[in-house]
């Protein structure tokens, strides 16, 4: 019988939650969207995922070894980064673009800050924005779906958001009649690898909501704000502004709202803070989409709100149980 016992502070039991469990659940939640993207883009998509995953894992392991930190590539966080990064790139991305993106995401977006839990910005979005600004041509070379074994080559095709922006500039008016919203929901449209299939993304998001790893606050507020604001503009002038359903389904909003804006490390912790975050993201996305130079504003708006997270946290500390306003304090000390 052991004479020396283990002493720790309480509690002495623990829920089954652990970091790998959280991370791999998110990976599971992304699988439907990954499957759809491979279905629609075939070998190109598979290559992108493969390159991204290998580069990201190697980069993280190398960084941690060099910085003399424990190597934690098996905890699943870098796998999420890799998958999401691939999902944020156009399907025609050359291999070197994926490599540069992976390195940027892991090294500049995560490891230099101290690794998991310490980064202020969403690493995937840092990479996406760096690539967008550095390689605008490759990053906007959108192609039509070329499913596996279909024999179809990928043809250049604009994204819906890109199309309406160009249309607005050239003709001054938008014609939305040609868009089939069913296509948008399923994902048969131009766009980044993973952002297209709303249904697949929602499926994964529902799983995460059920597990409790994301809460409704940010996605609902974000998408809701976009819906309301674009709705207001559309009602004011339907020819210059697309309707709110279009805005919600097109572009990377659903992917961003459910999988990027809900990244735990870079977003506020309190429910009130999360709502403010979602609101801010929504407003910024709408402003960039409608009045900014880029057709899509999700990446930028989430990054900007990431910067605001510390101050949001500071000012939205939850009310403690038994909080008394100073003038009410009375007898209690």
């Amino acid at each position: 019988m052991k004479d020396v016992y283990l002493i720790t502070s309480g509690p002495h039991v623990h829920s089954t939650d652990s970091i790998p469990r959280v991370m791999y659940s998110v990976v599971l939640a992304l699988l439907p969207a990954v499957a759809v993207s491979i279905l629609f883009f075939g070998a190109a998509a598979l290559m992108m995922y493969a390159i991204s995953i290998i580069t990201c894992i190697a980069a993280e392991a190398a960084c941690q070894k060099i910085m003399k930190r424990p190597v934690t590539v098996t905890d699943g966080s870098v796998l999420i980064t890799a998958i999401l990064l691939a999902m944020n790139l156009p399907p025609s991305a050359p291999w070197w673009l994926v490599v540069v993106g992976s390195l940027t995401a892991v090294v500049l977006g995560k490891q230099v800050y101290g690794g998991l839990g310490y980064n202020p910005f969403n690493p995937v979005l840092v990479a996406r924005v760096v690539l967008l600004i550095s390689f605008p041509v490759q990053m906007t070379n959108w192609v039509s779906p070329a499913p596996l074994f279909s024999g179809i080559d990928m043809v250049s095709m604009a994204t819906p958001l890109g199309e309406i922006k160009t249309e607005l500039l050239t003709t001054g008016a938008i014609d939305l009649a040609r868009y089939n919203y069913f296509d948008f929901t399923v994902g048969f449209m131009g766009g980044s690898l993973g952002e297209m299939s709303v249904i697949a993304l929602l499926l994964g998001a529902l799983f995460l909501l059920y597990r409790g790893y994301i809460t409704w606050h940010i996605p609902v507020t974000y998408i809701g704000t976009v819906f309301v604001l674009t709705g207001i503009f559309w009602m004011y002038d339907p020819t210059s502004f697309a309707n709110p359903v279009f805005h919600v389904l097109a572009g990377g909003l659903v992917l961003g709202a459910f999988f990027m804006a809900t990244d735990m490390v870079t977003t506020p912790v309190s429910p009130r803070g999360m709502v403010i975050f979602g609101l801010g993201c929504g407003i910024l996305t709408v402003v960039i989409r409608l009045f900014g130079g880029y057709p899509e504003g999700v990446a930028f708006s989430i990054l900007l709100m990431n910067a605001a997270t510390p101050i949001i946290d500071r000012y939205t500390v939850p009310r403690k149980f038994g909080y008394t306003r100073p003038d009410e304090a009375g007898g209690a000390s």
């Binding site: 020396v4 016992y5 283990l6 002493i7 720790t8």
Partner: peptide, 8 residues
């Protein structure tokens, strides 16, 4: 000697 194993 250590009287117990401390983890914390």
């Amino acid at each position: 000697a250590n009287t117990f194993d401390y983890v914390g």
